[in-house]
Structures are given as C-alpha cells and as structure tokens.
C-alpha cells in the first residue's frame, strides 16, 4: 500500500482502524405487512473482523447472515446499532472503494459478456482503462473463465455466475471482500477452487468476511467463525477453540463388522461413567455443535 500512499500525499488521512469490519449492537427490524407486523432479523449483534483474517458467519437459513452483510455494505440501514468498515460508517461511499461484495445467488446483466461485466463494474469503481483491461484479464484467468470471456452471461451456468461474481467483487483490488455463500450452487470441484482462491486472497493480505451454512467449507478456510441463530450471536471464536470438546472422544472405524460394534457397545455399557452419546457415520464436530445450538433452541431451551 505504501506506494499508493505516496501518490496521494496531500490527502487528509482517514483514521484507519485495525478492524476491517466492526459491528456494534446491530439490530435490524423489518416491518412486514400493513398492520405493522415485524420480523427481527438481526438482534443486538456484535462482532469484529480483524484486517487480514478470514471471518465466517455461519447459521441456518433465515438467521440473519445476509441481512448483517447488507448492513455492513450500506445496502440497508441498521434499526439500532452501527456497522463500520475500516473505521468508516458503512453508509460512507468511500468504504466501498475498498470493499468487494458477492451477493448470494448473484445475477448480473444477462446481455453483457463476462469481460464486459468486469469492465462495467471496474468503471463504476473509477478504474482507468488500461489498468482495467489488465485487471479484467487477470481476474478472468484467476476464476478460470478466460474461455467464456466473450460469452454473454445469459448463457452462463450457476457456477460460472458465481465465479464471475467473485471476479466482479475483486475488480478494484479491494482490501475487504464480503462473500455471501460463495460456494452455493457450485460443484465440489468448483467449490474447492473457490476455497483455494479465498486462501490465496488471504495470503495476499485481503480481509475476507464470508457467510455460509455449509460448514465444512467454513471450517476449512476461516480463521474465526461466529455462529448466528435467530439474529443473535451464539458462539464466536477461533475455529480450533470452538470445535474442541474435551470430554468427548470420537472414533472413526473402517470396515467395522456388526459383531465388533456389538462388542464395543458391550464394553461401554460395562463402564459406569461412560455413556454412548452418539453412534453413526462421522460428522464434523462443527456441524454437531451447530445442530446442538439450533436443536436446543428449537426445544425451547436457552443458550
């Protein structure tokens, strides 16, 4: 960044925050219907995304992930609380110079080709022609769409749209990228590639704020995750801490015969203090915790 700084030495510097995203007591209420019914989509939510990290927000459908992201992007206003991007209020247009966004199920102008789409968004970011041309080629290669650069988006598959959306989010070399379900609708190979891309971006020093309900993906790329349910933050922290459950042991067997399983069960029953919590095919621990939180909530329990 230093060389860019030197180009604009006269500009009055903005007080930069080490936090890429800062959400404080955010509440978002939607009024639905004419009679003033409302839905609390996000309820007193607070979290931070540090510059340079990959932060994942996970939660089931309708838990308020997209809503939080839209508030951070200034597409929606908070009913209460605030959201900041690099210390700037999320409504500040300057925040968007350094933010890239990939919405869920992105949809672009069908009549534009892949390259034209990137150019359109680049121009909106005020990029110069030559720079934009180079950047477009670079990004198309990065997301593996060089071959489809001249095709109209109307003919793109869902996965291709997701990739062009990702490229679009990166066009102006943002410092923060917000990805709403980046791998939704993408096949396993494609989703693997996207995850690799996210890791590469992180290595380049770009902050990533993503959300998903596909846990194994979050698990793999995120430095920290927040688990959100019904608009409230349920758990938050570094991934390793969240998924470690000390008093439980998981065993994964291969080619176990029913007789062997029977024997093991007998042994467990014989032990006084041990209880078989669960048996079945293995699941990620994160998913288990996720279901625990959600399940408890649905049983009427409190977190």
């Amino acid at each position: 960044m230093s060389e860019v700084l030197e180009k604009n030495p006269t500009e009055e510097p903005v007080e930069t925050s080490p936090l890429a995203v800062e959400v404080n007591n955010l509440t978002k209420v939607f009024s639905t219907g004419i009679r003033g019914d409302h839905v609390v989509a996000v309820d007193n939510l607070s979290f931070e995304v540090k510059a340079g990290e990959v932060y994942g927000l996970i939660g089931p459908n309708g838990s308020g992930k997209s809503t939080s992201m839209k508030v951070v992007l200034g597409l929606m206003q908070a009913s209460k609380g605030e959201a900041k991007v690099f210390g700037l209020d999320s409504g500040d247009i300057r925040a968007r110079n350094v933010t890239g966004f990939l919405p869920e199920n992105p949809y672009f102008y069908k009549h534009l080709s892949g390259a034209e789409t990137l150019q359109f968004y680049g121009k909106l970011c005020g990029m110069k022609r030559k720079d934009l041309k180079e950047r477009t080629a670079e990004l198309l290669e990065m997301v593996g769409l060089e071959h489809a650069a001249k095709r109209r988006l109307g003919g793109y598959s869902k996965g291709m749209l997701q990739r062009i959306g990702l490229a679009q989010a990166l066009i102006q070399r943002p410092k923060l990228v917000i990805l709403d379900e980046p791998t939704a609708g993408v096949d396993p190979v494609g989703s693997r590639e996207i995850r690799d891309l996210i890791l590469k971006l992180r290595d380049d020093g770009i902050t990533i704020f993503l959300c998903s309900h596909l846990l194994e993906q979050v698990q793999e790329v995120c430095d920290r995750v927040g688990i959100i349910f019904e608009g409230r933050m349920r758990r938050e922290g570094p991934l390793d801490e969240l998924i470690a459950i000390e008093n439980q042991t998981a065993m994964t067997l291969e080619n176990a015969s029913p007789e062997l399983l029977e024997k093991i069960n007998e042994l467990i029953k014989a032990e006084e203090s041990t209880k078989l919590v669960e048996q079945g095919h293995p699941r990620t621990t994160l998913e288990r915790m996720f279901i625990k939180i959600v399940g408890r909530k649905q049983d009427g329990g409190k977190s």
Partner: peptide
C-alpha cells in the same frame, strides 16, 4: 418504527 418512517 420503520412503518412510521415509511409513512413520513
């Protein structure tokens, strides 16, 4: 709240 704002 927001309904009122909308109306205003």
């Amino acid at each position: 709240m927001s309904f009122f704002r909308q109306n205003r």
